[in-house]
Amino acid sequence: MDIIVCLKQVVDPELPQTEFAIEPATGRQVREGRPLVISTYDENALEVALQLKDRGGGKVTVLTLGPQAVISDAFRLALAMGADEMVVVDDPRGPDRLGGEKAAILAAAIRRIGRFDLVLTGCESADWTERVVAPVLAEALSAACVTFVSRVEAADGTLMVRRMADEGFHRVEVRLPAVLSVASDESNRPRLPKLKDILAAKRKPVHVWPVADMPAAPGDLAAGVEVREVVIPQRTTRCEFLEGESAEQAAALAQRLRDLKLL
């Protein structure tokens, strides 16, 4: 099976909150000087792809959209983990584009890659959390789509997947080609690469395609959405002392919590 995994580079979400900043004029997140990593669920998607390849063979291509100049070492690790090659759509504006627009560019890149049976993405990105790339990609590629997939099993030209649902999961059969967005699961914890594969990854092909070469998206997939403002929520803490004996305090506390709809 030929699989394409979309990996997004984001500012390390584990950084302390104080490192999170937004440029007031543009509303874009400040990335300069911050460590960049592969977005959390994208790594789970990669692991799913590698497991499918381990079991059934085929080829895994990782695809990313972003400024080539700051493509981090993390992608070398993706190749070391077992991806066969990498395509970078070099786009300085990449990280600031909205999901629909990004998906349209990724779809163009996927058409240029050519053959594929399956496209995997993370179920949401660690920065924008839009959750739209997979469905828009599927639309653009005329492929089946299932989101929030925790497990994938290849079965005779189709896939049996588990889709996360409230208090359980759905078992869904999907025809190929398909686009799946992957959620984390104990079965898809990203593997660690072998040390020798870290060296070998250096020799794997990396193709860099300028975003300008990507043919324009069919229709206007990004239309209708515009980000007007980006704000960091201000958190304040306030301390309130309840008077009286313990029993009175307890009653007052219960009442306050109820008022705040916390009980």
């Binding site: 070398r76 690790l77 070391a80 870290i198 250096k202």
Partner: peptide, 15 residues
Amino acid sequence: TTEHRLIQQTVRDFA
């Protein structure tokens, strides 16, 4: 080097 850093990161994750 990049390789040494990636090796460090990988073994640190394992550790």
